[in-house]
Design a protein around this nucleic acid. Structure first.
Lengths: 206, 206
DNA sequence: GTCTATAATTCGATAGAC
DNA sequence: GTCTATCGAATTATAGAC
């Protein structure tokens, strides 16, 4: 493996992430990717095997650090002597994803949008990203059930689904003039986190 | 115009609506449409001109009755002697769309999913549907501003955006086993409307 | 590992007979 | 208005030289 191999793979992944985010899976062509990445067309199939495997690789690269932070926050909440508040739990849900926007320089907004795009892709593409988050999602839902034992699981199910929808929407709209999150400055991210949690938490309680 | 012309156009529109809903714009081919619609390939371009014009026609067919009901509910709210409650206003936002699910027999779930899909399509397709709802959206936002004058317009902007996101998610997931709306029975639609309004209204107030 | 060249399909759109 | 046939361009994926 030559020294530039990693570079080529990363270059493909970065460009593909942006084009998938903007145009979706079927709306992105490998020719567009290699053209912008300034690599050869055959390099995609050499390094990733197929267009779908490339998508899986993009998903894995961005999702794993997020899931890792989610699981860490979850274990912190569990290790506490008492049950967390709804607000603390919601913050653990949205914070790892919103923190995407504080890392990666010029790729921040693209990465956030890609995460949102994953959830809006038609099947079977959507399932690729869903699989990465499935374990953490189930654990969050279990925790909501413990904090809100009087609500039936089915109700918590669709409520949590709407929470994720709101998070995804915030990520996709980030950077636009009328969005909740207009910049990627840490203090703006923190403010948006608080506002999003405040918007969602009373609805979870009801 | 022969007697079967309307039939052919409607057949194309109905099949296209389902395929666009399931696979998105770029994921749907005209060949798939005409194959399932059992019409000739050339009929699409004869009746609609292009794939994008076909999409516009599908959007117009489902959106106009919804917008009409939105505007009627809005004028009723305005004609009242006092300002509506948050709950009444939110109900006017979500009800016309959810009522899609009480009409059209076997096309109900498809139509709901298509509406959701419109909002998740990459540009420039998304703007086609957005344009149909733009006027009503602005009027709803004005009404929220009157009911909640202490909140800045920018804040109401992203909150209303999250309300629509929740509505769209409910529409897209309708019919699935763990969704808020599992069937299309009128009483279930009414129950879902109430639960959705109850979930969202406290967040609007905060 | 990177490249050129191309295979093998598939796409949207249209020409022209009926 | 409906059909067959096809154009021209674009797609993913691969074979094979270097």
């Amino acid at each position: 493996m030559a020294a530039s191999t990693t570079e080529t793979k990363e270059q493909i992944l970065t460009v593909a992430e942006r084009l998938f985010a903007e145009h979706g899976f079927t709306g992105t062509t490998l020719r567009n990717v290699v053209s912008e990445a300034r690599v050869n067309l055959a390099a995609v199939n050499y390094h990733f095997g197929s267009k779908e495997e490339l998508f899986r690789a993009v998903v894995a690269r961005f999702a794993r650090p997020v899931v890792e932070r989610e699981l860490r926050l979850l274990s912190e909440l569990k290790s506490g002597s008492e049950l967390p508040s709804i607000e603390a739990l919601l913050r653990a849900v949205v914070q790892p994803s919103l923190e995407i926007l504080s890392e990666g320089e010029d790729t921040r907004l693209v990465r956030a949008k890609f995460m949102g795009r994953c959830r809006t892709e038609p099947e079977p593409i959507q399932s690729i990203a869903y699989a990465e988050f499935a374990v953490a999602t189930e654990m969050f839902l279990d925790m909501f059930q413990r904090v809100l034992p009087e609500q039936p699981r089915s109700q918590l199910g669709w409520k949590f689904d709407l929470v994720i929808s709101a998070l995804v929407r915030v990520l996709m709209e980030a950077g636009k003039p009328y969005a909740l999150l207009k910049t990627t400055r840490p203090e703006d991210i923190e403010a948006a986190t608080q506002q999003l949690v405040a918007f969602l938490s009373p609805g979870m309680r009801t």
